[in-house]
């Protein structure tokens, strides 16, 4: 429902920040962000407002959650199967 785009904060100027989205820069307002933002942080942008500072450790948590899920979902018996599946796919790409 809400197009949210993550981007990298380049500079902060009081209540706004310049944010880089894949090489596209736009000034984003900081009124709504939940914690202080500094250059080098990632933020989630929606309609020109940062609505979340994205802590790097939370990105890691998300990725680990997915790895965990894969491990659990596949179970011991299936593990080899998935590993070979991933290997096959790697060679395909």
């Amino acid at each position: 429902m809400c197009l949210g785009v993550p981007g990298l904060v380049v500079e902060v100027d009081d209540l706004t920040a310049v944010v880089d989205f894949w090489g596209v820069r736009r000034r984003v307002r900081l009124d709504l962000v939940d914690e202080p933002v500094a250059a080098g942080d990632y933020v989630l942008n929606h309609v020109g407002f940062a609505i979340r500072r994205i802590p790097p450790e939370d990105v890691q948590t998300t990725l680990e959650l997915y790895e965990q899920l894969l491990k659990e979902a596949s179970g011991d018996l299936m593990a080899t199967d998935v590993r070979s599946e991933i290997e096959n796919l790697k060679s395909e790409f």
Partner: peptide, 21 residues
């Protein structure tokens, strides 16, 4: 921050397989 990929097609296929299971 490293290029952390939430669009990795390899993991996507593995997750799709997990979803099917």
């Amino acid at each position: 921050m490293a290029a952390l990929e939430f669009r990795d097609p390899i993991r996507a296929k593995a997750l799709a397989a997990a979803l099917a299971r």
